[in-house]
Nucleic acid binder design. Structure first.
Lengths: 214, 214
DNA sequence: ACCTGAACACCGTTCAAGT
DNA sequence: ACCTGAACACCGTTCAAGT
């Protein structure tokens, strides 16, 4: 465990990737994604325009298209960038309930700051979600004793709940809204707890079945 | 109970609403909504265009705009129409678990046949959902013994789960997709069961607290 | 290779003009 | 009152032309 952490740090500090130019003069994908994220954070995906993005970057429309072939491709880059910021697996500790809640709250807070991205990110989870995150979440549940089928069911419940909540409005961050006086953030956590309780019940069943089979 | 059922039927058969013109010649809102639904069912909300809708209706673009002032308004009409088809409260029986599952599956099947509507419908639940449905669901949970706060949490879990699932792709109906071989419809029900289990755990707690307070 | 800016086909929306 | 069809301001995308 400690080894992998050290490895991560050192490789991150010393990585001078082979022949990749550090700052290919002119536009870089990194700069484009950064600008796109800023625009989305400010006016949402609906307000993100290839023209506006180009203006923000100080280039002509065609230049942007030379680096990212399509708006869909641009959003894929942004989505991958956002997913990559979700709590890194190595730092997780404690019971599986807390781990799952932390990941979901983290995901919600990141996506919540970028209105309109939730949908797109959920529509392409499979292609965008970092393998680390996926593996770690599944491992956590496996270690806790969940069956394969239960893992699928529980993750389905969690992910789509977060997706639905995020699609409906900014829940987290400075723009957190409220519904009929209800604090949306509190409501979000309450719903999360309901699903956690459901997962616990599922786990109890899984363990009972495992014992019966022995 | 029986009375209300009879009332429903008879009023539906004999309703000749006061001064409302039966078929105000020309375009009617009903016809517009019907055509819009057909287009959405076929090519999704993304494929629904005011121009295409007008062509389908056999009128000029301006005519459509004369009846529905904006595309947003059109989608509100469609959304209200779809919500109104969710299982009517009067027909519900059995334990609250089954009632809730039925409503959610019903909602999913209706929304699932209209790609892209899930988001819009969730974004405007408050304005679109029929009061009957809202009241009935809350009453069911109240009768079961849920606390006010638990009701909010449980409904949050259910609704946003369905919303997230629906936004991610057609789960139900003839276009039901599959993810990595997994049957999406089965996955949807499994996730629903997890949330039901969570609600049951919550109810047990609520009852315990109520007993302790006595 | 990278960038420019005009052009194309589409969209939602508006509006003078007809009946 | 209801409808027509042109027009406007925007989009995403393409592409000949420049450096």
């Amino acid at each position: 465990m400690i080894v992998s952490k050290i490895d991560l740090v050192s490789s991150a500090e010393t990585s001078h990737e082979s022949a990749e130019p550090l700052e290919s003069r002119g536009l870089s994908d990194r700069a484009i994604v950064r600008a796109a994220r800023e625009i989305i954070a400010e006016v949402g995906v609906g307000g993100l325009t290839m023209r506006r993005l180009s203006t923000e970057l100080g280039v002509a429309l065609g230049a942007t298209y030379h680096h990212v072939a399509t708006k869909h491709g641009l959003l894929m880059l942004v989505g991958k960038d956002l997913y990559s910021e979700v709590t890194p697996p190595e730092r997780m500790e404690g019971p599986w309930q807390d781990q799952l809640k932390t990941v979901m709250l983290n995901l919600a807070s990141i996506v919540g700051c970028h209105p309109g991205m939730a949908n797109f990110m959920m529509l392409h989870v499979d292609e965008l979600i970092p393998v680390d995150l996926n593996v770690m979440v599944r491992d956590t549940l496996l270690e806790a004793g969940f069956s394969e089928r239960s893992i699928a069911a529980v993750l389905s419940a969690f992910f789509f709940y977060v997706a639905g909540m995020m699609s409906t409005g900014s829940v987290v961050g400075p723009t957190a809204t409220s519904i009929r006086g209800q604090n949306l953030m509190a409501l979000f956590e309450d719903g999360l707890d309901v699903i956690v309780a459901g997962a616990e019940a599922r786990l109890a069943e899984d363990r009972k079945q495992k014992r019966a089979r022995r």
